[in-house]
């Protein structure tokens, strides 16, 4: 196994702050894995993302203890620009990611590649491809500032994907999107995974995490309290105490279990409920 992201005993304190927002965090993410960071707001998820992309401590300063290793190189040995090419970061708030220097979506998406000095012909091809992938071709001539929240969120994702980074760190990419738009974003992330990208996603929508992600990192008050494959973490009774939403089907299954209905396994996707119930159902076994 090759670790793409490796954190060893990482603690971090913002400047002028008394408390650490990250407390002694260690984990390792393999290349090509889709990992979701979950936890309630204020638990340190976004700071953790900022650590992986080097903004902590390169940009925010503050005290970082422990080691952050990205693709076998310590984060402190990277220039911030080099990291920017390796780790693509999609902001939580699409309203702030838009550059403000481009007056249409096509150019906005092309902006990162221009800065990297990619030849114009290649830029055009890559931008076209990404606009299609993210389903925003119809927005190409629109001013980024005239877009709705959901549209901006897609433009933000497109402008990162187009750079083709090895690692994608995506902070709540669907908060402004309707359910179908949300599903589409997850499909795009799945496609990125198929292309071998390593994906780190912060998201609250547990039904979709259960459907798409490989692994979970559970954050609670700055600590990494649980980690492992999605199914294992959700099946661990310890998960309940962190007051994080379960996938809806899991919540129902757990309540059924409490009411005395045995389950053959704990379902995490809607279509598994029938199976979890039937296998143990009286009618089936007796």
């Amino acid at each position: 196994m090759t670790a793409m992201i490796d954190l060893k005993n990482v603690s971090y304190r913002y400047p002028v702050s008394d408390d650490s927002v990250l407390k002694n965090i260690s984990f390792s993410i393999e290349k090509g894995k889709f990992t979701a960071i979950i936890g309630n707001n204020g638990s340190g998820k976004t700071t953790l993302c900022n650590t992986i992309r080097g903004f902590v401590p390169h940009f925010y300063k503050g005290d970082l203890d422990g080691e952050v290793i990205i693709d076998n190189t310590k984060i402190t040995d990277y220039q911030l620009g080099q990291l920017g090419e390796k780790v693509g970061y999609v902001f939580q708030n699409p309203f702030i990611q838009v550059s403000g220097v481009k007056d249409n979506v096509f150019e906005e998406v092309a902006y990162g590649l221009e800065n990297l000095g990619v030849p114009v012909e290649e830029i055009k091809v890559r931008v076209e491809e990404v606009l299609k992938l993210v389903k925003i071709e119809y927005l190409r001539d629109k001013n980024p500032f005239e877009l709705s929240g959901g549209q901006r969120q897609r433009v933000a994702l497109a402008s990162i994907i187009v750079m083709d980074p090895e690692i994608l760190v995506i902070d709540e990419p669907t908060s402004q999107l309707d359910p179908i738009g949300t599903q589409q974003i997850f499909e795009i992330i799945r496609l990125m995974k198929e292309r071998g990208k390593t994906i780190v996603l912060v998201e609250h929508k547990m039904d979709l995490i259960a459907e798409y992600a490989d692994d979970l990192l559970v954050m609670h008050k700055g600590e990494l309290v649980m980690q492992g494959p999605v199914r294992d973490v959700l099946a661990d009774p310890a998960f309940e105490k962190y007051q994080i939403q379960y996938p809806h089907v899991t919540e129902i299954a757990l309540q059924l279990q409490k009411s005395g209905i045995p389950l053959s396994f704990l379902p995490i996707r809607d279509e598994e409920l029938a199976e979890a119930l039937n296998r143990t159902g009286v009618a089936v076994h007796d």
Partner: peptide, 26 residues
């Protein structure tokens, strides 16, 4: 999600809340 689950379990239409679904299964 509850409506989708109810459909997958072949319950008649109308179930929307988790409590309704749990009651129906019980």
């Amino acid at each position: 999600a509850v409506a989708q689950m109810a459909k997958l379990l072949d319950f008649s239409p109308g179930i929307l809340s988790k409590q309704q679904l749990i009651k129906a299964i019980l």
